[in-house]
Design a binder for these strands. Structure first.
Length: 380
RNA sequence: CGGGGCGUAGCGCAGUCCGGUUAAGCGCGCUUGGUUUGGGACCAAGAGGUCCUCGGUUCAAAUCCGAGCGCCCCGACCA
């Protein structure tokens, strides 16, 4: 990607209403833009990170044997009357009356919809166990949205639901998800603590939450619940067991705030100059910085490095704006690309500098060795 | 929903207390020209405003009064 052709609106100063570090950096690095309280646009760089996180979640969920589907955001309110949660959720739920006078809601979560599907399609013990999940935009009219995308009214969530024939099965599904969550957060570069939690409006008999380390008080990034028979009984989601008797399905549900992870990663990975993305979710691996756009040697070499890395499949950007080196260094640090390739001083010796964002260490390297250097770092 | 704060150019702010030639300002950013080029360069010339909205007081309102809208922070709830 060429910087001048892309869209990265960085800012020197954080907006005055930003308090937390992730909020300030998300805005300053040009990752998000606020439209209304708790409602944000993901700008190109922010979207890239969000998608990388999303893909990690998807990969690990698929590895665990869970199966992806996509349920609608728009739901009939009637479904929620079956479980009594229409009232329980209260004003957190965004509702409207459609043109035919039907009461509709924007889904804040999907236990009712998934249970409705399962009760109609799952009939036998032979079809179980089953874990279904989706990655989807949720709507919650929070009492107080805050800290930008950490508590938004519209946000991206991965929600999974497990279905088992008995309590032992539920325990196994639950532990499988717990282990999967550990892998996901680990790959995202998040250090998480697991603690027992209140089940709140989701209900069930036991739940644990994953809390990311950081200064921000709201850092819960994942929450897993043993729902038991609460929903299956209320909505009559039954299966026929080996003994020929109809029994309610044991359920669990497992949520990850995908968009919140993005903010949580920043809370745990930054310094005075900006964000320090872990390799796994960095919007670009490398930012190539020609330090002087007036020097033809620098331009030619920079362009060649860019093409070589691109041709080898690396996700990189070149900052070919007609700006001073200082501006480019500041933006590179702020946006948190893991590596900067600085093309300048040593150009006569066919050498460039590779700076690691995190350690600030600088390595001088011959230009012909750059591709193999990144091959060894990224692909072992 | 209770408590606190804020709303003036894209962003950050001054001006508001004490109404009036500061006939609406500053820094950054933006445009044009030139000089620069390793940590947010410099010079010059420009563009950019319903002072959140509506109403009131007054000869006169960014400034005073009333109502409304929006945003942020603390609390209870949540991924």
């Amino acid at each position: 990607m060429k910087w001048s052709k892309y869209f990265i609106p960085t800012q020197k100063e954080a907006p005055k209403d930003a308090e937390t570090i992730s909020h300030k950096l998300l805005i300053r690095a040009g990752l998000i833009d606020k439209l209304a309280s708790g409602v944000y646009t993901y700008l190109p760089l922010g979207l890239k990170v969000l998608e990388k996180v999303e893909n990690i979640v998807r990969e690990e969920m698929n590895n665990s044997g869970a199966i992806e589907l996509l349920m609608p955001s728009l739901q009939p309110a009637n479904l929620w009357k079956e479980t009594g949660r229409l009232d329980k959720m209260g004003k957190d739920m965004i509702r409207f009356i459609d043109r035919h006078d039907r009461e509709m809601i924007f889904g804040p979560t999907h236990e009712e919809v998934i249970t409705d599907i399962v009760r109609r399609y799952i009939k036998s013990w032979k079809q179980l166990p089953l874990i279904l999940y989706q990655i989807q935009t949720k709507f919650r009219d929070e009492i107080r949205p805050r800290f930008s995308i950490i508590r938004a009214r519209e946000f991206l969530m991965k929600d999974a639901y497990s279905f088992d024939i008995n309590e032992e099965g539920l325990d196994m599904s639950y532990n499988l998800m717990k282990e999967t969550y550990r892998k996901i957060f680990d790959r995202c570069g998040l250090k998480c603590n697991i603690r027992e939690a209140e089940s709140g409006v989701i209900g069930g008999k036991f739940s644990e939450e994953f809390v990311a380390e950081g200064e921000c008080s709201e850092l819960e990034v994942g929450h897993i619940f043993k729902l038991g028979l609460e929903y299956s009984k209320a909505m009559k989601a039954n299966f026929v067991d080996k003994d020929g008797k109809e029994k309610p399905i044991y359920m669990g549900c497992y949520g990850i705030g995908v968009s919140r992870i993005v903010a949580a990663i920043i809370e745990g990975n930054y310094d005075e100059n900006g964000i320090i993305w872990p390799l796994s979710v960095a919007p670009f691996l490398v930012d190539i910085i020609p330090t002087n756009m007036g020097d033809n040697d620098i331009l030619v070499i920079s362009e060649k490095i860019y093409n070589d890395l691109k041709d080898n499949g690396f996700d990189i950007i070149i900052d070919e704006r007609d700006e001073s080196a200082g501006v480019k260094f500041k933006d590179a640090d702020l946006c948190g690309f893991p590596y900067q390739i600085i093309v300048g001083k040593k150009i006569k010796e066919k050498k460039v500098e590779i700076k690691e964002r995190k350690s600030k260490k600088i390595l001088e390297i011959k230009t012909e060795n750059i591709v193999s250097y990144f091959n060894s770092i990224i692909r072992g």
